[in-house]
Every structure is written in C-alpha cells, then in structure tokens.
Amino acid sequence: MQDFVFQNSTKLIFGKDKEQFVGKEAVAYGRKLLLHYGGGSIKSSGLYDRVKESLKDQGIEVFELGGVKPNPRVSLVREGVALCKEHDISFILAVGGGSVIDSAKAIAAGVHYEGDVWDFFDGKAEVTDCLPIGVVLTIPAAGSESSSGTVITNEEGWYKRSAMHPSMRPQFAILNPVLTYTLPAYQTACGITDMMAHILERYFTNEKNVELTDRLCEGALKTIINHAHTVLEEPTNYDARAEIMWAGTIAHNDMLGTGRIGDWASHDIEHEISGIYDIAHGAGLAIVFPAWMKHVYKHDINRFAQFANRVWDVEIDLNNLEKTALAGIRKTEEFFSSIGMPITLKEANIGDEHFSEMAKKGTERGPLGNFVPLDETNVLEIFNLAR
C-alpha cells in the first residue's frame, strides 16, 4: 500500500427536500453569487424557483449564467470568469450535473488568474486558488460534487482536458435523490457507467496489499449493478435512486483510491472521442473500458480473475485464469449493453476516420495510464478493438 494523505472537505447534505437549505449554506461565503446551470430542466421541474427563493431569503444577490452543455465548453467558462470579475462575485452555485459543476470549477479557478483560463488545461499554468463553490446535484454520474478536478472542452481543435486543485472541491453539495426521478433512462445509464468507470480506474492498479480498498471498490460496483435496472425500470424508486446517487459520490471522492495508484488511461482515451464527437461521457466509457481491458488483461490476469469473481460472480478456473478474466470482461460488456449503452464505436455511429488523430492528440504529453502505460500505437490498437 502507498503512503497517502486523504482530506475531503466537502460537506454533503443528503436527502429529500434538502435544496431548501441552499441559501443558508451559501450565505456563509458572501452575498454576491453566480448561479450556474445548463438548460431549462431545472426551471420546468421547479428546482430553479426553489433555489432562487432560498437564496432570496438570505438576502443574496444572484447573477446567472446558464447554457452549460455536456462536455462543457471553455467559451462559456470565459464568459463566467468575466462576469465574476465584473461584479466582484464571491461564490458560485452549480445546479446540475457534472458538466455544470466542472464549468463552475473552471470559472472559479479563472477568477484569480490574469491569463486565459485554458492555460490551466493546456499545462501552461497551475491552479492556485478558486472562488468557493456549492452544488445542488441533479445528475449522479461524474462525482464532481466532491472531487478536486474539472474537465473542459476547447472548441479550437476540440481538445478535452482536465485540471485539478484541492480548492476546486465544493464547499458543500446537496444531494436529493428525488431530483433524479425525471432523468431520461439514457442519461441515468450514462451516469451509472461513468461512476463505475471511476471505480474501475482505481481498481486496476499495480499496487499490492490493498485488500481493504479492493473490497470497497468491489462492494461499490456490486451496489451499482444491483440497483441499476431498478432505477431504469422504476424511476421513482427512492431507495434505489438514493443508492445510485450516493455511489456516484463515493466513486470519485478519492476514498476508494487511497493507498493505490489508479490508471486513468480509459478516461483520457474517451476524452478524445467525446472531444471530437460530443458523445456522452458515460457512453464513451462503455465503449472504451472493455476495449482497454482486452488490451491489458494479460498484464495481471490474477487481478482480472479476481474482478470477474468478486464483482460478476464468475467461478475462478484455477487451471485457466485467462478464461475467468475474459469472462469478467464479457460480463462487463453485457451489463453495459443491458442498460442501453453502446459497447462499440459502430453502435455510436463513430467510424475510424479520426483514429490516428485521436491517438496522437491523446499521447501528446506522453504515455497514458499507470496500470500499463500506453503509447500512440497502443491507443490506436484500443480504438481498433472498440470498433
């Protein structure tokens, strides 16, 4: 096990109707607030009005910036930075899913920086401080509500890149499972895939003697799997929605990665796909992760056999661990397919015309991943496996 420091300062407020407390939480950080959100769903559901009323009750002046898209764009981030600087805003409230939260984090980082905010994502500058951020979560998926990172897309060249800093962790996050009842099934399934991928990135490690976090990862994965079909078939099942929402936070709040070095190649590879094709991140991960598994499983067949056995209940064949490992990969593909996710690029209507470009862009800064470092040729092979 690796030495580690774990500190997650996000206050998590979980349960029904908890968005009514957003004003009381936000007012501690000042009385000028940027309300950041996506499209019209928070307005049609009534959430927007409830949030605005709670903020009004605390005497908070609200400035608004909507329009966040999936795979959030740096152009809107720049608008938000300018708005915050112009009005001397002291706090950003993100109401939405991972894209909204990531956009809010990027804005928060850019406010204290004199250069262009994309510098943080292009490796030209490092984040040093952020405006404080709060969250009302509507889509359990990305785990950004208590993580220290953000992912943004630049329309110039369609680069999708990440930045991290401890100050990006939200000060608080309100998680009400009822707010997820109206999510379309496809969006729910994308979220399920995304949170599973966050766990898998941590699970496939070269670190030895990490039994506790192995078991935590396996338990979280099994919980998600056990409730996935229920939330798709019974969208208003509170207990199932609550399990999925909490799992999405646990998957990416860094607890499951303590003492181990995760991989993250599959995320980087998927960023190239969604950067160009604007596919939902979870759908892209459903395609990439099994292909990555097929490419690297021989590196540690024992770990892949353990995964197959503990997560998918595949009986271990001691005489043929490769058979067990491959069965676990098939089970992963079958599950993603069963919840409506594509598991090949063809299913997502993505051809091979950008394979070379994506492999080259993805490895511009060096090999991807830690479990098995991948160069441009390896990434190209994974794209071909994902056809």
Rank of each mutant, 00 (worst) to 15 (best):
F289Y: 14
F289M: 14
F289G: 00
F289P: 04
F289C: 05
P290C: 00
A291M: 04
W292R: 03
W292K: 02
W292T: 03
M293C: 15
M293E: 09
M293H: 13
K294T: 00
K294A: 02
K294M: 06
V296T: 15
V296F: 10
Y297G: 03
Y297F: 13
Y297T: 08
K298I: 08
K298H: 09
K298W: 01
K298T: 14
K298E: 11
H299V: 13
H299C: 08
D300F: 11
D300E: 07
I301D: 03
N302R: 12
N302Y: 12
N302M: 06
N302F: 06
R303Y: 05
R303G: 13
R303D: 12
F304P: 11
F304H: 07
A305Q: 01
A305V: 14
A305F: 09
A305K: 02
Q306M: 06
Q306V: 03
F307M: 06
N309I: 03
R310W: 11
R310P: 01
R310L: 04
R310T: 09
R310C: 04
V311N: 10
W312C: 05
W312V: 13
D313C: 00
D313P: 00
D313N: 06
V314Y: 08
E315W: 00
E315P: 01
I316Q: 07
D317C: 06
D317A: 05
D317I: 13
L318C: 01
L318I: 10
L318Y: 14
L318D: 06
L318F: 11
N319A: 06
N320H: 09
L321V: 11
E322F: 03
E322S: 07
E322V: 10
K323D: 07
K323S: 12
K323T: 13
T324K: 09
T324N: 08
T324M: 13
T324P: 13
A325D: 10
L326S: 04
L326F: 02
A327K: 13
A327F: 12
A327N: 02
G328D: 06
G328Q: 08
I329D: 02
R330W: 01
R330H: 10
R330P: 00
R330M: 12
R330G: 00
K331L: 00
K331Y: 00
T332C: 14
T332Q: 14
E333C: 02
E333A: 00
E334P: 10
E334L: 11
E334M: 08
F335W: 09
F335C: 01
F335I: 07
F335M: 01
F336D: 05
